[in-house]
Design a binder for these strands. Sequence first.
DNA 1: TTAGAGATGATC
DNA 2: ATCATCTCTAAG
Length: 184
Amino acid sequence: MVAPRLLNKIVATADGRAGRIVEVEAYEGARDEAAHTFRGKTARNAVMFGAPGHLYVYFSYGVHWCGNVVCAPEGVGSAVLLRALEPIAGLEAMRMARGLRIVDRDLCRGPGRLAQALGMTGADTGMDVVAASSRIQFLDDGTPPPKALRGLPRIGISRSMALPWRWIVPDNRFVSRGPGKVAE
DNA sequence: TTAGAGATGATC
DNA sequence: ATCATCTCTAAG
């Protein structure tokens, strides 16, 4: 599972907004009923069946955008949901996008907030986050992912709840929720 | 501090 | 009908 390796990587925008990834969830079509790709390829989820390193951004509950990165070889239909960032640069631009009174901790805590803070929308679906020319890029400043990680239950799903595919940077105050219970 | 409900639209 | 959510409001 490559998802936990995204922890501590950096997401940056061309206009100087940046945050460190502190929480992710994996979704994998074939064995995961909660994945958008579980029922096969459609117009909406097609990018997830494509090459890794590309964004899949979908509209959730009629209100929020949520950003994922394709993290499996072509044809698999798998991606990783970005659930929380620790803001490290461009906080004022994030506040401009989210609301001027939002405190630092709430800027990118939760997938919908994170997307709003970075200005991520459906228009960004398909973007190559490894290419240096992209508006949104993933960077590695050398900080390794945490060791001895344990998968936790995912949040806000009603199927495949036993799959422990949520990972957080332990004790980081920018994660969207506490560790929660591990599925039995 | 926590709990509940409503908003709102794409998808199948 | 079902959601990979957030915010507000009200109560404790």
